[in-house]
Amino acid sequence: MANPLQVAAEVVSLQPAGAYHHLVLRAPGVAERVEPGHFVAVAIGGRDSATLLRRAFSIHRADEAAGTVEVVFAEHGKGTRELARVRPGDRLDVVAPLGTPFPVPSGPATALLVAGGYGSAPMFALAERILDQGGRVGFILGAATADRLYGVDQALALTPDVVVTTDDGSAGTRGLVTGPLAEAIAATGAQAVYSCGPMAMLRAVTEIATAHGARSWTAVEESMACGVGVCMTCVLPVVGNDGVSRFVRSCVDGPCFDGTKVRWSDVGTIPADVEGAAAMGVR
């Protein structure tokens, strides 16, 4: 787990980004601790708010010199609607960085970065880290419609190897991000595939990547009520290095996992062979 801080972060800016919002926060001491794949938990509405639970967002970028962290979010409910109304100069109580980041190759490597919607937000800092180490990257970015894509221009600024897909064909190729994945792995010789997006997408990406000889690292999308491993609402069944399946906390042990270790078909259930299941009354 990261070494997080709780700080009163100043809102630097909030700008529209297609169908999403791009929020920049000045959070002293946080930026230098951020690694690609970390997330931030934001308290919404102040001390008197009825919105008790923090909202978790992947960290898009961190600028150590400026002391800022950036997040991209969509309006889904009351909390994010309220967050979309903040103004420069406002203060937000944040805890960051949180979670276990993506493992980054120790030397030159070729990787594909696959994302759905604003799941692409943490991928650009990851790509820059891989490139800084002499590696190569390619992107497959998808969304339901063209306006739900995020970061295509940012990806193209890093590499010409960018494939865009949309469910309705309004941008790029019609279909899912998994459609061109096998061909892209073969064409680039990718040793690793990093992905962030809906759980069904992550499962499919993992299956295709491993079938074609690439490692699969996924950032899961699980609801996180506390973000620090206390409430146990974000648990997933994951196979450990010893071969034993256990429930692990996405917020602490993840959100970045080896995709082959996640028991995708059992997410949301209590499989009988998971360690401790008998104590929960599962037979």
Rank of each mutant, 00 (worst) to 15 (best):
V42H: 02
A74V: 14
G107T: 10
L156D: 08
M232A: 14
Y118I: 15
P180C: 09
V114Q: 00
S265Y: 07
D253R: 06
P271M: 09
A8E: 15
R26Y: 10
V230I: 15
P108K: 08
M224G: 12
V228E: 10
L83F: 09
S106Q: 13
A279Y: 11
I208G: 07
M1F: 09
V137C: 00
S170P: 07
L149D: 05
A143R: 02
T110Q: 04
E222K: 14
G138Q: 05
T159S: 15
L113S: 05
A121H: 02
V11N: 05
A96T: 08
A211S: 14
E128M: 02
L236Y: 03
A204P: 03
S120D: 01
P105R: 01
A41C: 10
Q191G: 05
L176N: 02
M232P: 00
A125C: 01
L5C: 05
G67C: 09
G227N: 06
C234P: 09
D63R: 06
E75H: 06
A111T: 09
V205L: 10
V163Q: 12
A219T: 00
L156A: 12
C251T: 10
G29L: 13
L52M: 11
A65G: 03
D242N: 13
E275H: 12
E32F: 05
R249P: 03
A56F: 01
V262I: 15
R283Y: 05
T233Y: 02
A277C: 09
L23M: 12
E207M: 10
V30I: 14
G18T: 09
P108S: 12
C196Y: 03
M224E: 12
E70T: 12
V42L: 14
A211V: 06
V42A: 05
A121T: 04
V7N: 03
S265K: 13
D161T: 05
G197Q: 03
T178M: 11
E64S: 12
S58M: 09
R26N: 11
W264P: 02
E207Y: 02
R215L: 08
P271I: 10
A19K: 13
P4G: 03
A182V: 04
E128S: 11
E64P: 07
A8G: 14
V94H: 06
P122R: 03
P180Q: 09
G117E: 02
V30D: 00
A225Q: 14
